[in-house]
């Protein structure tokens, strides 16, 4: 009997928890309490989706992978910015209501969903990747693993925008947004600048449009990054150095570019 093929599904032990979920839109809102049954091992996103399926069908929340790979589900849980799909309920104090709020730095659309278009606009402005000619007739390149490791670190970015969320330059001062692209874009810019194949010079862009000088290296972005990218040490500080060097020593910048070394 083929029906048996799902018989192995075991269910965990259940318990009740209360979530305080922010409900509202640009015109305002409030935290609403929802008490639901929870299964063993659940993450905050599971419980939010249980609330949605059983008590608040119109609760707006973004998610896709449920495995920390897409960066859609960022929110502030008990005040801490995180991926809700990677935050286990049992790491929180479940005897108290657990608050779930949208990330603060971006304009609210509804409930847990914010308008993150700032980040997409920034990405568009960054001067495109400009590779040198291929190394072989089949269009392929030769690169050594050690020369791309830093770039690979930066390319782990899942665009959760949590670093953007916690950066005080824009979190506390939305008026800085037109002049400051935020840590996510510095990661991208650093990646391009250190890419062994890239030939473009983005130093002026990093200084001016990027607004890197606004960053005063508080490292909040690094602390929150779910991909453990060393945003400040490996991306921002080298970029700041390049900008400074270019101003004082253009020759050194060109040397760095050609050899992939600083």
């Amino acid at each position: 009997m083929s029906r048996a093929d799902t018989s192995h599904l075991s269910t965990g032990t259940n318990r009740q928890v209360t979530l305080q979920v922010f409900r509202g839109d640009a015109n305002g809102g409030e935290f609403v309490d929802y008490t639901v049954e929870m299964e063993e091992g659940q993450v905050v996103l599971d419980v939010v989706l249980t609330v949605q399926a059983t008590q608040a069908g119109d609760l707006a929340v973004r998610w896709n992978c449920k495995a920390g790979k897409c960066g859609s589900c960022s929110a502030e849980v008990n005040g801490t910015p995180c991926l809700t799909c990677m935050t286990r309920m049992n790491t929180l104090d479940m005897s108290q209501p657990i608050s779930v709020a949208p990330i603060k730095t971006f304009p609210l659309i509804k409930d847990l969903v914010t308008d993150v278009s700032f980040n997409y606009e920034g990405a568009k402005q960054i001067p495109a990747f400009a590779p040198r000619a291929p190394d072989a007739d089949d269009g392929s390149y030769r690169m050594m693993q050690q020369d791309i490791e830093r770039g690979q670190e930066f390319r782990k970015c899942i665009e959760c925008f949590l670093c953007q969320d916690v950066c005080h330059v824009i979190r506390d001062h939305p008026e800085n947004k037109p002049n400051f692209m935020g840590p996510r874009q510095f990661v991208r810019l650093a990646e391009l600048e250190m890419h062994p194949l890239d030939t473009a010079d983005r130093t002026e862009f990093i200084r001016k449009a990027g607004g890197i000088a606004y960053c005063n290296i508080t490292k909040c972005c690094t602390e929150v990054c779910p991909e453990s990218i060393h945003i400040t040490d490996n991306a921002i500080i080298p970029l700041k150095e390049r900008v400074a060097d270019k101003y004082y020593d253009p020759f050194r910048w060109i040397f760095g570019k050609l050899t992939g070394r600083d």
Partner: peptide
């Protein structure tokens, strides 16, 4: 498929490398 993978590399993808620097 091989040409499409090389194309991704020319658009910036950084695949893991062999010891002699290929994909």
């Amino acid at each position: 498929a091989p040409a499409r993978v090389h194309e991704l590399e020319s658009w910036g993808a950084l695949f893991d490398r062999t010891d002699d620097g290929r994909i």
